[in-house]
Nucleic acid binder design. Structure first.
Lengths: 335, 335
DNA sequence: CTGTTATGTGACATCGATTTCACTTTTATT
DNA sequence: AATAAAAGTGAAATCGATGTCACATAACAG
């Protein structure tokens, strides 16, 4: 609406003095300060963010990039991170990429333009192009996925819970309950995280000497509807599994919905294990056995690492790895 | 990393020419353009957002402010709005206020500093202070709540679904099913939206000649846990209702969870109606009767109105009101 | 071959807040 | 009273991209 020059004119002082009065830094007499503040109020003055940023090179904003807003998995991370950022007076701005690498790249570009001071990036499938973009931006970034760079030349921080191990826990749980036909509902294995999960299931099955065939592997997209669709497909086949490992809670919920609708009893007929231990897991019926993925902790740790880079100027890389944990509820039981 | 001056120096041209080469606007010879683009690439140049914004006064970013990230009600709105913004090359940045008016004000201030070009504001309790701040900012804003300003002097757009009517539909549905002891689980009526919902239930009960007492009204906070807690409290009392109207799906889900855990059959013992018709409503068991609140449509309309103000310079006020609608599922039936 | 238009380029002002520096006035110190 | 230190102020540079304007050169018309 107005700027410091207009205020300066109105109160008969120089813009420098107005700036000092408003910021409280540097010398400024009491009278001048009062006059300026009064005028600022009257003229409905607000500093222009862009001008401030251009000069001091800090936005005090953090970009938090998630693939999807429909998945409650991310909420905990956002909350955890936000708690930390808030303490430092930083704002968290959320953006979602719709599982689209192009969109992800656009957000990285936005960071690179210094629209924010740093970024927490939750990526399903961090591709070489985007890694390069992040590195070239020179901006602080924390990734919440494990990622082994083929060139080993990246310099961002990682905070993650081992999804591979998480799925292993889920699978082992069903094996320990005596199940021998165990199916896996995952995502497209072209995506890194989906591949990790798949491997977790496969390796654990192999280790226990279970025979696996392709028809035990179902591909969804982490939504409830896709879990439902996998159930539909599964039931058209013979030799129905007695245990299902789902790569996230949402797909497990969709799967269970199908079973409820078709009088398939859970856990009597089929045991189901989800992953992420979102709020829903405890609130649906039957309660869903799931894997705690420490979302809030990831968020807090990621935010802390980011603030270290932004405020303390740390330049070397840090990696934090957290352990997943099984929670048993009613959806799984001894065969 | 670098700026147009450094590029200018490197290629032996003036910053003006570099700017023209990069923007593609104005005259620039092919050789110059090529030299500049090559250098820009090599020097890893990215324009600085703040500098651009300071000059052209457009950020091409929209702030989308929601009270809470855990509530799936907002997702549809975000998606709908984002679809529109995307078409115009605008970015949607989400911020959440944790149901806190101070936080909401901070976001309004951020808009006022022109960190974004406009805002969609989903407020639970839009207070006078914040209304004033929005008005004084002079920035385009769309509210997704009904709000009757006591002074009638605001100038922002509204897009909303009538929550009052939504709850009326839910209540009438239970009445039509023959229920006569109908409880209401809502929010704190100090918040506008909670008050509207409460009135919807009360007025419909009155209209049908039902007697109401205070002990039929339960206060939650729109989370699943609070729905559970209300159920707990309800069951300690005598004269348990046979129909429950919940002010949103999440509380209904929490309520149902309690019932499942305590062998209270739904809908045989108690009929439950939720509100918002989130994805969950169809996916839990039993399927939850709910009220369609047209979230995506709200989002699309709100975004369209905002773009009208930003791109076409509309300055007068518009209000769009959408109708709620009942979806009957298994959680409610004839008494 | 002159006059006109189209191209290409650089100097410079601009957007608004911050900050350094020089200068003046006040206050404190011995 | 003399001197040092502190307080108050404004001019001007800065951050980086954009756009206007003046000027120069090229292309083109008659």
């Amino acid at each position: 609406m107005s700027n410091i020059y207009e205020i300066a004119e109105k109160v008969g002082l120089s813009p420098s003095t107005v700036a000092r009065a408003l910021s409280g830094k540097g010398y400024c007499s009491k009278e001048s300060r009062e006059k300026v503040l009064k005028a600022a109020q009257e003229m409905n003055y607000t500093p222009t963010h862009a001008a401030k940023t251009l000069k001091n090179k800090r936005t005090e904003k953090i970009l938090f990039c998630i693939p999807d807003i429909y998945n409650p998995f991310y909420f905990g991370m956002i909350k955890g991170a936000n708690d930390i950022f808030e303490k430092h007076g930083y704002y968290t701005l959320l953006c979602y990429t719709k599982h689209n690498i192009k969109e992800e790249l656009r957000m990285i570009e936005t960071l690179r333009e210094k629209y924010g001071d740093g970024m927490i990036l939750v990526s399903f499938n961090f591709c070489e192009t985007n890694i390069k973009a992040v590195n070239e931006s020179g901006m602080p970034i924390v990734l919440t996925n494990r990622y082994d760079s083929p060139h080993g030349n990246d310099n961002f921080d990682y905070v993650y819970v081992d999804t591979y191990k998480g799925i292993q826990l889920a699978t082992r749980h069903l094996i320990e309950q005596g199940h021998d036909r165990i199916a896996f509902i995952g995502g497209n294995i072209k995506e890194q995280t989906s591949l990790e999960r798949f491997k977790g299931w496969k390796d654990e099955m192999d280790r226990s000497g279970m025979k696996i065939d392709d028809r035990q592997v179902y591909v969804g997209d982490y939504t409830m509807d896709s879990g439902y669709a996998c159930a539909e497909l599964m039931m058209t086949r013979s030799n129905i599994p007695t245990g299902i490992v789902c790569a996230n809670d949402l797909m497990a919920i969709g799967f269970i919905r199908y079973c409820n609708e078709h009088k398939i009893r859970i856990p009597d007929d089929i045991s189901v294990v989800g992953m992420d231990n979102t709020d829903l897991a405890a609130n649906i019926s039957p309660g869903l056995t799931s894997i705690i993925m420490r979302q809030e902790e990831i968020g807090r740790n990621a935010a802390t690492l980011l603030m270290e880079r932004i405020l303390d100027g740390r330049t070397y890389k840090k990696t934090i790895r957290l352990e997943p944990q099984l929670v048993v509820r009613e959806s799984s039981r001894k065969k």
